[in-house]
Design a protein around this nucleic acid. Structure first.
Lengths: 105, 105
DNA sequence: TCGGTAAATAGCGATACTGCGATATACTGC
DNA sequence: GCAGTATATCGCAGTATCGCTATTTACCGA
């Protein structure tokens, strides 16, 4: 039916989504090409933190924490290349979350 | 694409779901017959607050606030009959939320 | 190795959420 | 009206979250 582990996992995900800026960031990441160009193409490695920070209009530390929260929730993955951290949506997990609403929830 | 109103609405819903007890309650309401019997059948009018409170093992005021939060998020509806408030899932809204994950989110 | 840049973490005040007891409101039966 | 029950709301202390600056860590090129 619904084990407690799944429940805890869902709570973490919902908490992460329960913030306007974090929710918006996840939406922005659907179109990585809308961000400024970067060394590695955003379509393949993800969007550089700096660009996310700029669009969200928050401090560097806040942007970093937002992405860490989304990552802990399994909603995004991080690819570090050199000194840059690139973030992209974890479509598999997001789709799974959508499926759980209505079944587990 | 995704207007701010929808975004705000989603944030409220996700905040409501980002709590282990509230998430569990929403799951329990999928099977109203698992609750103790009551004057009006739970399948049709919803589950009495007292029964939700008992299963969640929280105080009366906490249970009332939990349900108010879920109701504000549009995830449950309340049917007041006499002195009893009955709560049931708003399947339409829940399904809509599931659909928005992956499209709007 | 050193200076510069990107990101993560520490620490902090402000704010929001949590869950409770106490109280107020609403309804019922007598 | 009155006593009893069910629920909603108030006010509070404890806790967690928020977003920042300052600092630390990690990586790069010269």
């Amino acid at each position: 039916m619904k084990d407690d582990e799944t429940n805890d996992e869902l709570v973490v995900a919902f908490k992460a989504l329960g913030h306007p800026t974090r929710l918006a960031i996840l939406g922005w990441l659907k179109d990585p090409t809308s961000f400024p160009p970067q060394d590695q193409p955003a379509e393949t490695v993800g969007v550089c933190l700096k660009h996310i920070q700029a669009r969200a209009n928050v401090s560097q530390s806040t942007a970093s924490q937002f992405m860490a929260t989304l990552q802990r929730a399994g909603l995004v993955t991080c690819t570090r290349i050199g000194q840059w951290s690139h973030y992209q949506r974890n479509e598999e997990q997001i789709a799974r979350l959508g499926r759980l609403i209505g079944s587990s929830v």
